[in-house]
Nucleic acid binder design. Structure first.
Lengths: 330, 330
DNA sequence: CTGTTAGCGCGTTCAG
DNA sequence: CTGAACGCGCTAACAG
């Protein structure tokens, strides 16, 4: 079916080596040979076989991306940023969903490794096993870092971002501030929780009964939020550690007929398309998600290009965007 | 760096062929040999080399996905559904963004072909060139179909979906119903526009000045919506042909201080996470997006498995979900 | 059951 | 500048 270099060579009346040289654009070739080869390649519809090329060059020009779920807008934006950067260099993205499950993640990593990706960026699952990453291929972690894994990582300033949210709420006069987060086994979440705790503790306002920690899905966030908000002594403000948690709180607030911001102030982590479409528009800690993917891509390309040296950790800044979900400043 | 079958064979004291047989799990091997090979494979940390395997088996166990932009929730959900189906069969997803640009699409297709994907599902760009798809590898189109391209396609009943939206509006007493859509070169959009026109024409209410057709981005949709809604004789209801258009109309309505549904009724095509979070919750024509990806995956696998026969077109149903953006029934 | 021998398609010496 | 010859890592006959 597929036409090979050999076919083209025969048609052009040259050796396979010569044809390979002009098609692969390396080594010498006379003007005449080059023209003949190129024309018969076009005529026969030659398509280079990357898998054969990869076998000898030991480079697939492919990078792997392992995320929790591409259907989560955070991961989708990351994928976009990464894809933009690596595609410009001729790489293609191999995608795998791990669903925040270490086993699926291990399998995904094994598959990518078998396919001999030139490098990979991974958003590690909670309780990920550092050993499953250990092997020669360049790796950069994104959003979270696995304990005991010596590899590049690009993340945001999670603690500072969370702190900015809590301080904003404090400045508005709130004293009972809750948090809804997913598992602290996710390093970014644990850093956000830590930032939240640090600020409240400094103000003597930390109340552990207002800390609600649950699963990673919208549904679990919804349940967690209900648990926190149904109580008579519910918090007057809530900080959510990621977009799914924000979604869950919004749903719960609606069910309990809590008006935002009058009955409940809200600051979410991560900005999304729809945060300014809801009523009131949401005050959020925005993170440069696409940029996260781009920076991870650049880091990875640098490693693929042979950069050595100790693991590098890059932190990007978050930005508090004040909209309407906390009411007006006093 | 990488340990090969030959290395394992040597360590286990058997021939390379025998080691290959147990590692590849095909052909005969005695219990003893199998054990020795497996243990040395584990000890050496053997990872099968899929690129070598693919070279001889002529199957990469990889399928390509070409979408407009993975950052669009519609495409992300499609990717998820497709990924679920093909991963279960051991395939991995190779992802490419074409940004609704035929040139980028052509390049993406060429790259995927070079990488020798076993098949691909493509959401064709507007004005896509049928010729760029023509080649042996199994292909299924998703959401839209290219004119003159004889290939499987899985789509929704676009015209019927649009009609259900317009009829809903008509039933509520609206007589000036507008539409905001992206380019009709996208077959799904043109079918939605056609459905809209058909119903209104049947009622003698079609007014071409209420038809607003623009680009595919949120920004262009926003501008188009402003153009339609700023006029004194603006429509009392709008149907939007996809989620970006819905976003644009919502933004424009807010800027013009049009209250929904009192000043403007809205039905959107495509349901999203946030449609029930906005106020009022949006009435939409919901399409089974993840299912679209799954069905495309099954179609593709069938073709990869050797199914022959004429192109098959599959249409999935949409469903009108009535929420609050059109007000109450009279 | 096992080892030997060929390739898969392409990049890469190394003589001409 | 060009061709012959070899090897990347693995699957696939085919004799033993």
């Amino acid at each position: 079916m597929a036409v090979t270099v050999k076919d083209v060579a025969r048609a052009a009346g040259v050796s396979q080596a010569t044809a390979a040289r002009v098609l692969g654009d390396y080594g010498y070739a006379s003007e005449g040979a080059r023209r003949r080869v190129e024309s018969s390649a076009r005529r026969l519809g030659y398509t280079p076989n990357h898998v054969a090329r990869a076998l000898v060059s030991r480079a697939t020009e492919t990078v792997g991306l392992v995320v929790g779920d591409i259907d989560n807008p955070f991961f989708a934006a990351v994928a976009r940023g990464l894809s933009d950067v690596v595609e410009r260099r001729g790489y293609t993205l191999l995608l795998a969903n791990a669903d925040e499950d270490p086993d699926r993640e291990r399998r995904a990593l094994r598959a990518l490794r078998s396919k001999r990706v030139d490098g990979m960026v991974v958003v590690p699952a909670p309780r990920a096993d550092p050993a499953s990453f250990a092997d020669g291929t360049p790796l950069v972690q994104l959003d979270r870092a696995v304990r005991g894994l010596a590899a590049d990582a690009v993340m945001v300033h999670n603690a500072a971002g969370a702190a900015s949210a809590v301080e904003h709420l404090l400045g508005l006069g709130h004293t009972r501030i809750g948090i809804v987060s997913d598992a602290p086994q996710i390093s970014s979440s644990s850093e956000r929780i830590a930032g939240y705790r640090r600020v409240l503790r400094a103000h003597g306002l930390l109340d552990e009964s207002l800390v609600s920690i649950g699963g990673s899905s919208r549904e679990e966030a919804h349940r967690a939020a209900l648990g926190l908000l149904e109580r008579p002594d519910r918090p007057t403000a809530v900080f959510t550690a990621n977009n799914f948690m924000t979604h869950g709180v919004l749903l719960a607030a609606r069910e309990l007929r809590l008006r935002i911001p009058r009955d409940l102030a809200l600051v979410g982590f991560d900005d999304l398309d729809w945060t300014m479409l809801v009523d009131p528009p949401l005050t959020v800690v925005s993170q440069p998600v696409t940029e996260l993917g781009r920076v991870a891509g650049e880091r990875l390309l640098a490693r693929i290009d042979g950069e050595t040296g100790p693991p590098r950790r890059v932190r990007l800044d978050t930005r508090l965007i004040v909209r309407g979900s906390c009411g007006a400043m006093l």
